[in-house]
Design a protein around this nucleic acid. Structure first.
Lengths: 104, 104
DNA sequence: ACAATACATAAGCACACACTTATGTGTACA
DNA sequence: TGTACACATAAGTGTGTGCTTATGTATTGT
């Protein structure tokens, strides 16, 4: 079940940090590592989990593997969240702006 | 850290089921239990986690404790998601509708 | 062909998590 | 005052998770 994979993937702070880093710009696994105190296998395992949740996708480039945000996972969260729109407080201005953007 | 609490709370499928049930209408802990194969202490513990994540809030009513969705947690997820709006695929119509609702 | 590099996978381990049973706390009502 | 009820908390247990070290696989460059 993808819903479970997504929330479980995001439950780990290190994985959220990796995702956030990728959101600022796609890069390979080694580039993701620097600045983070994390071993190479640990990074590889985290990326595998994020991939399984469709939050991230890979693209082989020679012996490098470039990672980028996969909109699929984000779309799923958005849909999940939309189910509870009845409870959103009116003061979420960030989202108002966001939606206006999408409406163009 | 509330962000961590929220995602960890939602990582469990049973807790998401409880939250979904509450989203359909607030009710007390016992009412939440029926239909679900879950012990009373387990339910109480799950509710405590959801409370800690501000996804749910309680309101004592005599010897009953009424639970309801807390918009605070949802707002946080919305804000988190909004940070990645650059990656949202255009085809999320559900959110477009949602935002239009919030706009008027 | 060989060494170096980038990444994935395997196996083992400490800890967190979701459950259980047992018990505690507080309210309602006879 | 005592009993029943609604819920919370404590303590123990099996399983999952995230890490480690070791090794495997694939590509690059000499």
């Amino acid at each position: 079940m993808i819903e479970n994979d997504i929330f479980r993937a995001l439950a780990d702070p290190t994985r959220r940090a990796i995702f956030e880093k990728l959101a600022a710009g796609s890069m390979n696994a080694s580039a993701l590592r620097d600045g983070m105190k994390i071993s190479q296998p640990a990074m590889s395992q985290h990326l595998a989990v994020l991939r399984g949740a469709r939050l991230v996708r890979e693209e082989r480039q020679g012996r490098f593997v470039n990672y980028e945000v996969d909109p699929e996972g984000l779309a799923f969260i958005a849909q999940w969240l939309a189910r509870y729109r009845a409870y959103w407080p009116a003061r979420i201005d960030a989202l108002k702006v966001l939606l206006k953007d999408m409406d163009q």
